[in-house]
Design a protein around this nucleic acid. Structure first.
Length: 201
DNA sequence: TTTGTCAAGCGGAGAT
DNA sequence: ATCTCCGCTTGACAAA
């Protein structure tokens, strides 16, 4: 079967050219037209497109079209290197209300149960998978943020240790320069600060 | 043009 | 075998 190495079709997409935005059906037609798939590949691609329709938060072509034409959803093509198939990915931008609701639920519990996932999906008019993905990405963002905080903490801590080390070295040098050799004094000094420390090394 | 953000894909790991 | 999670990555988009 003919292999599709590269898919780089212009479908007239672009911001500010909404009158040229194709419907999902037109997308399918144009993809087929441009690539002239062999029948088998056409079928596979069509299935793939259908999968993406199911996968997206919309179920009908009309709904897809409305979303494509609305302000918070854009469409683009993706090409899977693994399967050499073409599909359409609809880039979803969640609304403020959707994000607020998700955030609120995330604060209560950052892991989803099956029931919670489906409830939220229903409430937000999203697919359960999209809710799941949002939670996964949200956990990743939290973790990243925490890592940054930890990193900052250890950086500061490290800096303070360096300062302390510098200070102790100066103090040690000062003590040595005064040539304080009294054994009574030495007893109360930590080993490293003991003027006789060199003897132990 | 570069950089940051975010939804989503992919693959591996662990649990059931 | 299936599900869910995580880490990494991709591609679209917006902002700088």
């Amino acid at each position: 079967m003919e292999e599709v190495k590269e898919c780089n079709i212009s479908l007239g997409l672009g911001l500010g050219s909404s009158e040229f935005l194709p419907t999902l059906k037109e997308y399918k037609q144009q993809i087929m037209f441009h690539l002239s798939f062999p029948p088998q590949m056409k079928e596979e691609t069509d299935n793939e497109v259908q999968n993406f329709e199911r996968f997206s938060s919309r179920t009908t072509d009309d709904e897809v079209e409305n979303k494509i034409n609305s302000s918070n959803v854009y469409s683009n093509k993706i090409h899977s290197n693994k399967t050499n198939k073409i599909a359409i990915r609809k880039k979803l931008v969640l609304t403020h209300e959707q994000v607020m609701m998700l955030e609120q639920n995330f604060r209560q519990h950052n892991v989803l149960t099956q029931t919670k996932k489906h409830d939220l999906a229903d409430q937000l008019n999203l697919q359960p998978r999209q809710v799941e993905v949002w939670f996964q990405n949200r956990r990743a963002r939290t973790k990243l943020k925490q890592r940054e905080i930890d990193c900052e903490f250890w950086k500061t801590y490290c800096e303070s240790l360096r300062d302390e080390n510098r200070r102790l070295k100066i103090e040690l040098q000062d003590l040595r320069s005064r040539k304080l050799g009294s054994s009574a004094y030495c007893v109360h000094l930590p080993l490293a600060m003991n003027p006789s420390y060199d003897k132990y090394e």
